[in-house]
């Protein structure tokens, strides 16, 4: 790269600063709202910074006293973790063998394309029969039922990621192990899977984030604390019937913490996942 003029350097820094503000300002405001007293939030002109930080809403939402607003929120938190966790594990369980099969036997690859094509289906196209089917099985308003539905959102992505990962592991390594007398599953378990561990981790992160974010099915298929997830809880709070904007913001901050934490800490893995599908596609 050639030497840059001073003007260009200034321009780049100014743009970078602007970008940083655009990205940070809304998130920062969400947090400020969550610790501002209600009066500050309905003041005109608006108070941009609370005179006194008020963390009471966090305490309120995270309390576990039975039959309280906090209990409802923590139940939703637990449901979100359970549903996203189960769906992620199940997605990996089906994606690892399927991804390996497609990687090693490309002639069956068309079936994976079909699976991935289901991504185009809008959830509303499946919602009515799914609703009726889950009702018949008694799995409405049930974390297992919801996790089962989520599995089908996660599995196409994770399988595709796993396939890309297996593609980078030479078959020769597997062949050598087989020659030493190991059977297929031993080979997979001892040789291939350890090598593919970074991809497994990336797939798991993606799957978890996707499941955490889901709203539509959760809105339709859950009705109370037994299965209602965080996204639905927050949408309920934001529905315009709560006068304390700070409480809505607090719920938002709490729901955003896990994925944002994962995003920031695991960023390398996530970006490699984001691009491995894209670059090769």
């Amino acid at each position: 790269m050639g030497p840059r003029s001073l003007a260009f350097t200034i321009f780049v820094h100014a743009c970078a600063l602007l970008l940083a503000v655009v990205i940070l300002a809304p998130v920062a405001w969400l947090f400020v709202m969550s610790i501002s007293p209600a009066a500050d939030l309905s003041a005109k002109p608006l108070h941009w910074w609370p005179q006194e930080a008020d963390f009471s809403r966090y305490k309120l939402l995270l309390s576990t006293v039975e039959n309280s607003a906090g209990a409802a929120f923590t139940a939703a938190l637990r449901n979100s973790i359970e549903v996203a966790g189960m769906a992620t594990l199940a997605a990996l369980a089906v994606a690892i063998p399927a991804g390996w099969a497609v990687s090693r036997t490309p002639s069956v690859g068309w079936s994976l394309s079909m699976v991935i094509a289901t991504y185009m289906l809008p959830p509303v196209a499946l919602a009515v029969p799914l609703y009726m089917g889950l009702a018949r099985l008694g799995m409405l308003n049930n974390v297992f039922g919801l996790a089962l539905v989520y599995l089908t959102i996660l599995a196409p992505f994770t399988t595709w990621l796993m396939k890309s990962g297996f593609d980078t592991i030479p078959r020769e390594i597997e062949a050598a192990a087989m020659m030493d007398g190991a059977n297929l599953f031993q080979t997979l378990r001892r040789i291939t899977l350890p090598l593919a561990m970074p991809v497994v981790a990336t797939s798991a992160l993606f799957a978890f984030l996707l499941a955490w974010d889901e709203f539509f099915y959760a809105l339709l298929f859950t009705s109370d604390q037994r299965a209602k997830t965080l996204t639905v809880t927050i949408a309920d709070l934001a529905g315009g019937r709560i006068a304390d904007y700070g409480l809505i913001a607090t719920a938002g901050v709490l729901a955003a913490l896990p994925p944002v934490f994962i995003g920031l800490v695991m960023q390398r893995a996530l970006i490699s996942g984001l691009t491995s599908g894209g670059v090769k596609g």
């Binding site: 609703y131 009726m132 009705s223 529905g239 019937r241």
Partner: peptide, 22 residues
């Protein structure tokens, strides 16, 4: 066990919960 939804969700929740006997 109590469940609270905004007014806008009350009708749909009631109707949808028929499937689960919620």
């Amino acid at each position: 066990n109590l469940e609270f939804v905004p007014y806008e969700g009350l009708h749909d929740k009631t109707v949808l919960a028929q499937g689960s006997g919620g």
